[in-house]
Design a protein around this nucleic acid. Structure first.
Lengths: 340, 340
DNA sequence: TTGAAAGCGGTACCAC
DNA sequence: GTGGTACCGCTTTCAA
């Protein structure tokens, strides 16, 4: 069923039918009612391609996903973030176009999307310093919002989590329990969020006049394996820590295993606060009696990014919108005080 | 840059330019070379909407994602499967259209996609018995491939993992180690794959004339929490099992925690084989020294689904293609023999 | 308030 | 080999 057929059935011109469907005021209410009824009856929906061609708006948002996101870090982003964003787009009548790309040809992918006219705007994930993508998108004039931010950059729209504050809170929580030696098990130092988490951790310690001990600060892959290895190293120290702030659930699983094998009970002999963006692991609360969690909802970030992007598409020349989300500190019962 | 502009620059008709670009044989090689060079120089790409409108093919594949996929089970599907599929689509010049939907309005979503002419085909996830979606897609004549299968259904194209065989292998592995009492910790019994896993497990036991003991077979949510609780229950039995086949990494994490707290060492006092589709947890091999894993690559399933779908789109009237993937048994070193 | 017709950017048939 | 032109399904100007 297309416009022409529908208008033929009704004996009204395509023009009027189109106007009735799109809510133009000049159509008589009687006609509109007729058209709407017929459209519903025949399950008519305007062909999106034709609409896009005629209006110049594709009503599609691009989500570019580098294949390197097999990588641990981007995995949760992929799922929950995208789900949140797509949901918001849908509410506003936009579709989501997923574009995979090699890590090296990311910039080209954006160029192509724009040249092919397939999207009205895009989201950029995990920006780096002086990000090529940002430069290209500006050059193309394609609306975009960045999820995360490159250290120091602030001349574009972005949505980010307040990682610094989250880790100040997490560290303070352990300090308040009386811990003096608190380890940090964090992601790779090239990542902006990991840098901010390092900052939050050191900030909290400095505020209590505790010296930073770099031998109990670790930055690397956020995997179970690394959490495990790191914890064993920490416990083997002459003066081992009594608690740790951990940057992801995957890491924390490794931490827990290492503690278990070393005979240390979490919440009694050793306290752990973890941070995670991915709610799925925490959803049923199974982690809470054991760990204390600082968590941010990646799905919510997706929704916000989408909202900002749609706003930018409608009003492209506005000054940068920069949204910082606060992470939530969830206090479980059994992360106990520091051993005396 | 569009066709008209490009043809003006070249002083050739749109028709010829289009033909040259699309590889039609009747164009002289000289002309084609000229056109190709100019296209590259000006970064010309045909507008997908116009192309779709003119050809009647949208070159887009729909991926419908019910919002209930916040649910644990569908989460890995979301990421790795979609990545695999999208990669394949891209190679063939197709784009991926992600459509979120409420669980209740899934069928309508397919109807709408078809009515709007936005996709050439779709993937259906996690089919149920007499699935409404399958019926509708057949009715619409929209090409589709199902990921998974409903018990007993076989009149459509699908790609599925050989869950039965995977669990026969997993169980046999433990039997070969000498275990006599092997528990099963599996997903909810309403799910087709869980049913098949139950079958595989019981099959393997029967083949060795071991009686099925339903008190050590568990079906429920595939979460850490349930893995933990179940394992505690198992260990509290009068005659506890000495090993377990576990249906997901999340469950296995709970199992490990329960064993740890009970002072049992994995691979010495208790053996575990886990099955998981999501490679990300296992990627660095951190689980292998501790668990033995039966794993299927969900990304690979995505690629295969995509291939089949593209094939079906090109040749819609072919008989059902039904692909069954074998899962891989990965033998770790420390899952030891049964205690004597 | 309604309708005819000219695009939007391509493809493909038909003639040359 | 190449070019003219109708058409894909919709929006939008212009006239009535």
């Amino acid at each position: 069923m297309n416009l022409k057929q529908l208008s033929n059935i009704l004996g009204i011109s395509q023009t009027t039918v189109s106007r009735a469907l799109n809510g133009y005021p000049e159509v008589s209410e009687k006609t509109r009612a007729l058209v709407l009824a017929a459209a519903k009856k025949h399950n008519y929906m305007p062909n999106t391609k034709a609409q896009a061609l005629a209006t110049g708006k594709s009503k599609m948002i691009g989500f570019v996903l580098p294949l390197s996101s097999q990588h641990e870090i981007l995995n949760p982003i992929f799922g929950d973030f995208l789900a949140g964003a797509a949901q918001t787009y849908k509410q506003e009548g936009y579709d989501t176009n997923l574009a995979l790309t090699d890590n090296e040809t990311q910039a080209e992918t954006y160029r192509d999307m724009h040249a092919k006219g397939s999207v009205d705007g895009v989201i950029v994930q995990a920006p780096r310093e002086n990000d090529e993508r940002v430069a290209i998108l500006k050059e193309l004039g394609l609306p975009f919002v960045v999820h995360g931010r490159a250290t120091g950059s602030n001349d574009y729209h972005y949505v980010d989590v307040n990682n610094t504050h989250a880790f100040i809170n997490a560290t303070n929580f352990l300090l308040d329990l009386g811990h003096k030696r608190i380890a940090l098990i964090n992601g790779n130092e090239e990542l902006d969020f990991a840098i901010r988490r390092n900052h939050g951790y050191t900030q909290a310690l400095k505020d209590r006049d505790i010296d930073i001990d770099h031998s109990i600060m670790f930055n690397s892959e956020m995997t179970e394996h690394f959490g495990y290895e790191t914890t064993l190293k920490l416990l083997a120290l002459e003066n081992p820590p009594t608690a740790a702030v951990v940057s992801s659930y995957a890491l924390a699983i490794g931490v827990r295993r290492a503690l278990g094998e070393s005979g240390l009970r979490i919440g009694k002999d050793f306290s752990v606060v973890i941070h995670d963006d991915d709610l799925s692991y925490l959803r049923n609360g199974e982690a809470q009696p054991v760990f204390t969690a600082t968590r941010s909802s990646i799905r919510h970030a997706g929704q916000l990014c989408a909202k900002v992007l749609l706003d930018v598409i409608k009003n492209p020349s506005q000054p940068p919108q920069q949204v910082i989300l606060e992470a939530q500190l969830i206090v479980g019962s059994s992360t106990g005080p520091a051993p005396t």
